[in-house]
């Protein structure tokens, strides 16, 4: 039966029509959805748009950073993703992450030892302090697990796959590809550390 019906030849015009209409329908149904899905990825990778606006956030005072140890500070950034439409119900979300701060090699600089909270620093002193402090993300550079200070072995360890970092955040063991991500930070004259949602080595993703 189907063989009998296979008698009408496909004309050149019909073939071209099928091709043209098929291509147009295919494009209309694939290209907009692809861009629709990839919107955030394109904006993040090609236009370097971040969900976190350009803001500085305080994490704490340098007097709270003890000697010989890395301390965790929670910091909350405003986050614009999905809900910041600008309409009447628009709201800006927030993202809380943890910064680890430690003195270089765990040694408190003399100019901090001499003073107590409430003291002010001059611009050159601030520059010295910025050189002597590490402000790092607590997301392991390997798989992003939360790293923590190991007070027994005096190092920063990752609980997931055993990444080990020194107190300065340098990678010493385990699978991580490099040292901890370092926040772009500044120290105010009153000794408060401020960070931006930006890292010296690039984009860690996830945090």
């Amino acid at each position: 039966m189907p063989e009998e019906l296979q008698k009408d030849p496909l004309t050149r015009g019909q073939f071209l029509y099928m091709g043209a209409v098929g291509t147009m329908m295919g494009l209309a149904l694939t290209v907009p959805p692809a861009f629709f899905i990839m919107d955030p990825a394109l904006k993040a990778t090609i236009f370097n748009r971040s969900d976190i606006p350009h803001v500085w956030r305080e994490i704490g005072s340098i007097f709270e950073v003890p000697s010989g140890e890395a301390t965790a500070f929670r910091v909350t950034f405003p986050q614009k993703q999905t809900y910041d439409s600008g309409g009447p119900n628009s709201r800006v979300g927030s993202l809380t992450e943890t910064a680890l701060a430690s003195w270089h090699d765990g040694k408190i600089p003399d100019l901090v030892k001499k003073r107590s909270e409430g003291a002010t620093f001059s611009k050159s002193e601030v520059r010295t302090l910025e050189k002597n402090i590490n402000v790092m993300s607590n997301a392991c550079t390997h798989m992003g697990c939360p790293v923590r200070w190991d007070s027994v072995h005096h190092q920063i360890v990752c609980p997931c796959h055993g990444g080990i970092y020194t107190i300065n955040g340098m990678h010493v063991g385990g699978p991580p590809p490099h040292g901890l991500w370092r926040y772009v930070f500044r120290i105010r004259e009153d000794g408060i550390i401020e960070v931006r949602h930006k890292w010296v080595q690039g984009t860690p993703w996830i945090v």
């Binding site: 955030p40 990825a41 990778t45 748009r49 969900d51 993703q81 993202l95």
Partner: peptide, 14 residues
């Protein structure tokens, strides 16, 4: 790939 999965460059509602 990772920003496609994240829906941005951070973890959030997307």
């Amino acid at each position: 790939a990772v920003s496609l999965l994240l829906g941005g460059d951070t973890v959030g509602p997307a």
